[in-house]
Structures are given as C-alpha cells and as structure tokens.
Design a protein around this nucleic acid. Structure first.
Lengths: 223, 223
DNA sequence: TGTATAATTTAGGTATGCCTAAATTAATTT
DNA sequence: AAATTAATTTAGGCATACCTAAATTATACA
C-alpha cells in the first residue's frame, strides 16, 4: 500500500498533466504546498516504485501503473464528494475538504457501495468527471467561460472545487453544473461578465470566470 | 490536532480502563500490537500533553482532557459503524475495520450529519453504547453470557466487534443485539452452551460465549 | 533478606516526509 | 560565448512512531 502523501503526489501529477505540458518539480511542489526539494525526494521514491518516469531537470510523467493509482484516488475523491452531497447533505463548498481526507482511507467495498447508491454517476457536484472502476474517464467537451462573447448562451458544465468562498459565491447565484445562462455584456479590458440566469442579472468577475467551464454554447440575440 | 496513533492510544487506554484495573504499559502495548518500549514512548508524549497521568512502573490513567478525546474517537467509531451498516449496507462483520480508519478523519460536521441521519442513536450494530456529543455514555446493564444457567432466557445486548469470523458465525444464527434466546443446556466442565433461538437449536462454544453479553435474564422452564 | 524473574524504561536505530541551505545544472541575456 | 539568473538536486536536520537490545526497577520466592 502507498502512503497518503505518495497518493497525493500521483493525483497531483495527473491533474497537472491534464492541464497541459510537462510537470516540473517546481510546479508540482507549488501545487502541493511543499518545497521543491521535498518534491524531488518523493519523485525519487515514486520512480523506484515505477509509478513515474523522471529525468533530472526534465519533469515527471506518470507511468501506466502510476496513472491507474492516480485515477483510483480521483475516483474516490469525486464519488465521496457526490456521496457526501447527496446522502449527507454536505454543502457543495464543503465536500472537497472532507473528501480530501477520506479518499485515502475508504475500502474498495465502500467505493462500490457508494457507486451503487448513487446509481453509477459520471460527474461530481462540481461537474468533474468520475472515472469508472476501470479508470476510464469520460470528460464532456467544454470551454472556459472566459472564452464567451456577449450574446452567447450556454450551460455550466464544471466549476473548480477547491475554493469554498468561490463556491458559496457561485452557489448564491445558482451557478451549478447544468444551470443555463446568457452573456449580456463583457466589460472591456478583461473586465467582468454580466450574465442573465433565469431572468436575474448577475455580475461575474474575471477571476471567478476562470474557474467556470461551459458547453452547449449558442449565439443568441440580446434583447 | 492529535496524530492518529495518539488517538488510538487514548481510545485503548479508555477501553482497558473500562474492563477493570490499572492499565500497565505491557497490557496497553499488547492491546495495540506494539512493543512495550513503543508504548512507553507514546505515554511520555501524552503525559506532556496532559492527556494521561503516569508514574513510572505504575500504569497509565486518562486525565479528564484525555477521556474527552477518547470518547470523541469512540463516538466517531460507533456512529460510523452504525452508519455504514444502515446507510451503505456494510455487513456487521465489516464495519469495524472500516470505522477504524475513518474515525480519525471525519469532521465534526460529518459526525453531526450521521448522528442526525441515524436519529441520534445510542448503540452501534454490535450493541455497544454510542457516547453522546457531550461524551456521556449510557451503558445498558448486562452480564456475560458465560454467567447464564440452563433454563434461563435473555436478550442479546452486546457482542464484541473485532473478530469478523466470530461475527459472521453469530450472524448465521441471527445472534444480533435484541435477539432473544433460551439456554437449553450448559455442558459441564466449561463446555459449550446449547440455546434455542426462535425454535432453532444452536450450540455456542465457550470462547464465542465470552464475547456475548445479555440482559433481561429470566428463569424459565425447560420443556 | 537476598536473589531470581518479570515488567518497564532508556538508548540507539529505521522509515516516512517535511524543512533549510548549499551545490549543481540549465536557460537566458548581452 | 560568457555571465547572470532560475530551476533543480544534494546534503544534512527535525518530528513522528515504530523497532531491538540493554539497563533499570519492582516483585516474588526461598
């Protein structure tokens, strides 16, 4: 069995790989709130376990074995988030922190039981895909909200799960995955978005918009 | 925050204190599957935190602060056992192991939500009392099954939760807390018990009987 | 009461996973 | 291409929590 720390490293490498390019020691360390030297140490250990590939000064990549474990942990995390949300009524801004601790600790049996209870779901409360038990991820197509133009309408597909303050803020506007809205105005010079959600006019700042993803984008007339 | 290991020590000291007499380093170590020297080390640490009292070669006792933490962990454990049993259908011989890991990790919020979901229960699936959120334990009166005489009938009140094999065995006879049975025969020389559960004749060995507690004992006629 | 036995504690070692500071390697600038 | 700057790695330390082996203290018996 792996340590919790090792699992966190694998999970983080996976997520950083998803976002783009190479995962450097520094980026990984920053992501994990750890010093680069510490990341180097763990990378070495993971390399001897053949869970990552690593060439000095070149960055890390998950091996197939490493990716399997990363996806297993991510599956735990997202199933737990959805379970806590649906079964215990934990608010969506609280599920991440709780799942972060539980993900390392639950058995395969408990994973299977939550999965069944939830009806084999494919997305967590923030819209992130839940890998299936074979590690297959089905990510729905989506674009960052910051790519939207005035007059376009769309449906929220995903919101990043880490910041409770942001999540409470978005929740207060009903901005959950599945919610439709129309862009009324995009203020110039990287300014905020004014959007229409079910008739309500809401202003969403740039920083918040960067954490929101949408799909079903359609060009509509602004009235 | 305490480490998981420290919490386990406090919990174990509490349980051993309950069972009777002084908790020696050796007994504590054996209970935790750890060498006496390791127990000495942890006891020292807990002493500096004022969670236990300890005089060299004299054994340990929980302080008030230590008992509060021990009961908090025991509450987590037993609430989790019952929650896993009722909400996720984990069999009663599996809940202990799972709860053992989760008890150190859940938040007070999750504790409260499970408590509410379960309707503020007072006993776990093995009949052990769940301390309330103020640390008040209401233990029902009960006696070990080994004290029963032929002809007596009673109701199972508690079964120790640690051994899955025993629990599956007892479960196969429906020997859960709340189940009534009558002692048909107690074989001489510390022999097994023959009991009647809902018309079924079942033989329970001494070793198993030591792990079973009963109440509502009544002298009845053997037919 | 002295000595053997048993329990406990001390001393020193291992592994994990973090840290800081120094050394090394790579990349960028002129 | 040399020198500065930035990233990474090595080296050495700290805390937790376990271990074994040796020393100590208490208890029991003869």
């Amino acid at each position: 069995m792996l340590t919790h720390a090792a699992e966190d490293y694998l999970k983080s490498i996976y997520k950083l790989q998803e976002k783009g390019g190479t995962v450097s020691t520094g980026i990984l360390a920053a992501y994990l709130n750890v010093k680069p030297a510490s990341a180097t140490g763990m990378i070495k250990k993971l390399k001897t376990m053949k869970l990552v590939s690593h060439e000095r000064y070149r960055g890390v990549t998950l091996t197939d074995a490493g990716r399997v474990i990363a996806l297993e942990i991510i599956r735990h995390h997202r199933l737990l988030e959805l379970y806590l949300f649906k079964a215990l009524g934990v608010p969506w801004d609280g599920v991440h922190e709780e799942a972060e601790k539980l993900e390392h600790v639950i058995s395969e049996d408990m994973e299977a039981r939550m999965d069944e209870f939830l009806g084999y779901p494919t997305a967590d409360p923030h819209g992130a895909p839940i890998p299936d038990k074979n590690g297959v991820v089905t990510q729905t197509e989506h674009i960052p909200m910051t790519d939207l133009q005035s007059g376009q309408s769309c449906v929220v597909s995903e919101v990043s799960d880490t910041d409770p303050v942001l999540l409470r803020h978005l929740g207060s506007f009903n901005l959950y995955p599945g919610t439709a809205f129309q862009v009324k105005e995009v203020a110039p010079f990287e300014g905020p978005f004014t959007i229409d959600i079910a008739g309500q006019q809401v202003v969403i700042g740039r920083e918040a918009a960067k954490h929101i993803y949408v799909n079903n984008v359609q060009d509509t007339e602004t009235t």
